[in-house]
Simulated scan of single mutants.
Amino acid sequence: MMIKTGTQLQSKWGIGTASGKVKDTYAQKVTKTIKDNVVTKHGEFGNKALYIQQSDGDFCAKKRK
């Protein structure tokens, strides 16, 4: 399943779950600064890195695999 910009997601986070909306997808290496932390994800075709705005307004970067 290809995840696109605007897709609503829910994932496991610690002992709970987090939900949000995909703001951007990347099929290459991407580096973002989130809350003063530098985060790098290595996206690729078929397994893109995701930049997500969580339901509480915060942002995170994830990769499915």
Rank of each mutant, 00 (worst) to 15 (best):
W13H: 05
E44V: 07
Q54Y: 15
N47R: 09
I3F: 03
I34L: 12
S11R: 10
I3S: 00
E44Q: 14
K21M: 05
T33C: 13
Q28A: 13
V22T: 02
T31W: 13
V39P: 00
T40N: 06
S11M: 14
L50D: 00
K35A: 12
Q10S: 15
D36K: 14
K29W: 03
K23P: 00
T17Q: 09
T7W: 04
K65S: 08
S19N: 12
C60T: 11
G16K: 06
K63D: 00
C60W: 07
C60P: 00
Q28P: 02
K29R: 15
E44N: 10
G20E: 01
K21Q: 08
K12C: 13
V30Q: 05
T7P: 01
D56F: 10
I34S: 03
K12V: 14
K12R: 15
D24H: 10
F59I: 00
T5H: 06
G16M: 06
Q28I: 02
H42A: 07
K29M: 13
R64C: 03
K12P: 05
Q54W: 15
F59S: 05
K23N: 10
K4C: 01
E44A: 13
T31R: 13
K62L: 09
G20H: 03
K23G: 05
F59T: 06
S55T: 09
K32D: 02
K4Q: 06
D24K: 12
M2W: 07
M1A: 13
A49W: 01
Y26S: 13
D56V: 13
A27H: 11
T7D: 14
Q28M: 05
I15P: 08
S19P: 04
T17E: 13
G6D: 03
V38Y: 01
S55N: 14
R64Y: 04
M2G: 01
V38N: 01
A18H: 08
E44S: 13
F45W: 10
T31Y: 11
L50K: 02
F59L: 05
I15R: 13
K65Q: 06
N47S: 09
S55W: 05
G57L: 07
G43Y: 07
S19H: 06
T17I: 08
I3Q: 02
M1V: 05
T31C: 13
K41Y: 04
I52Y: 02
A49E: 00
F45A: 14
K32A: 05
G16I: 10
G6A: 08
L9F: 12
D58F: 11
N47P: 01
E44F: 03
G46L: 11
S55D: 15
T5K: 15
G57H: 08
Q28D: 12
Y26V: 12
A18Q: 11
K32W: 08
W13S: 01
L50N: 00
G6E: 12
T17R: 07
V22M: 01
K63M: 08
K62G: 04
G14S: 03
F45K: 12
V30E: 08
Q53C: 02
K23H: 08
V22K: 00
L9Y: 10
L50W: 02
Q54H: 15
K41F: 03
K32V: 06
G6V: 09
V22G: 00
A18T: 11
G14N: 08
A27T: 14
G46H: 08
R64S: 06
K4I: 04
T31K: 15
K32C: 03
N37W: 14
T33R: 12
D24Y: 07
G16C: 07
Q53D: 03
G20Y: 00
M1Y: 10
I15M: 14
K65N: 09
K32I: 05
